[in-house]
């Protein structure tokens, strides 16, 4: 969880941002600059909040999900009279205020018990919204034994052919990766690969399971993997979805030109691993090529004169 100061900081500058005010202090200016569009983006922050009514299960579930997202998450206090599927503008407002582009929303009604909405935003506007019903929930606390340290980047596993075949589930998979992958890192400590989250889909259901990794000796460099379930574990039923159009999604996925790898021209490697370079040279003038001198090929006087008249092209 963010510290009290950080939260306050968020609140104050979120307020400025909401009203589109000019920063007064240097620090405020820095904060607003941090929020501007960037080439390499910040880690996506997420907000957690509840709807008009919740259940015990849902509260525990949201708490556990928050535990998995710490410290890139902010829980909002109290109840919020919001229906994300009907009107998402309040979410957009608070997401802009806290500069977060992911949100987890929990609500519990008779029609949709233990309802959880996971969504993401692009440019302060809702991109994808997916509603799940939580069943067979088991909390982190329900499992004995060691837990994983906060901020561990999880390995994400997706199983089931439906994740590739069904377009809704395909996008849902993308959303889940976005929601649980944490920050992108350039290097990772091999011993730090401790957490695995697996999503398995079958018949409109997604089974979410979370495991701790135990690395065993295998006699080779690569260790043998054993898993211990640590929770949270739940079966998510896919309810309503509000997904972005393919056009908008494509725009949102646009990669900046500066980050695209430059095409390496004229350098290649052959099968043996040696580097080959292709060099372009101008066409040679074969007529002026110095060949072996022979009496028979000697130029006549006239030819020499003609040669002199045409100056050598450099």
């Amino acid at each position: 969880m963010a510290t009290v100061e950080q939260t306050f900081h968020h609140h104050r500058h979120g307020y400025y941002c909401m009203l589109d005010l000019q920063p007064i202090t240097h620090k405020g200016k820095k904060v607003l600059q941090e929020r501007e569009p960037k080439l390499i983006e910040n880690t996506k922050q997420s907000i957690f909040f509840h709807g008009r009514s919740t259940s015990e299960t849902l509260r525990k579930c949201m708490k556990d999900l928050f535990q998995l997202k710490k410290p890139d998450a902010l829980p909002l206090k109290g109840k919020h009279d919001i229906l994300p599927m009907e009107d998402s503008s309040p979410i957009e407002t608070s997401a802009k205020k806290f500069d977060s582009s992911l949100f987890f929303f929990g609500s519990h009604t008779k029609k949709r018990p233990n309802n959880i909405v996971i969504g993401r935003l692009y440019d302060h506007q809702i991109l994808d919204l997916v509603e799940f019903g939580v069943e067979n929930f088991k909390s982190l606390e329900d499992y004995p034994g060691d837990k994983i340290p906060i901020g561990t980047k999880p390995c994400l596993l997706f199983a089931g052919p439906q994740f590739e075949l069904d377009p809704t589930l395909k996008r849902t998979k993308n959303l889940l990766v976005d929601a649980f992958q944490r920050e992108t890192v350039s290097s990772i400590r091999l011993q730090g690969l401790e957490h695995v989250i697996m999503f398995t889909t079958h018949e409109n259901k997604i089974f979410m399971r979370s495991y701790r990794v135990l690395l065993k000796k295998s006699g080779t460099r690569t260790p043998r993997v054993e898993l211990v379930e640590i929770g949270p574990s739940m079966d998510l039923t896919l309810r309503r979805t509000k997904l972005a159009s393919d056009d908008l999604f494509k725009i949102a996925c646009k990669k900046p030109k500066e980050l695209k790898a430059k095409k390496v021209k004229n350098i290649s490697k052959d099968v043996f691993g040696s580097k080959l370079g292709r060099v372009h040279i101008k066409q040679q003038d074969i007529k002026r090529l110095q060949t072996r001198k022979m009496k028979g090929l000697k130029k006549t006087r006239q030819e020499k004169l003609r040669h002199k008249k045409q100056p050598r092209k450099s």
Binding site: E36, K38, D123, A252, C253, P256
Partner: peptide, 8 residues
């Protein structure tokens, strides 16, 4: 994955 904000 989609970006958070548009390109600068």
């Amino acid at each position: 994955l989609p970006r958070e904000k548009p390109l600068p």
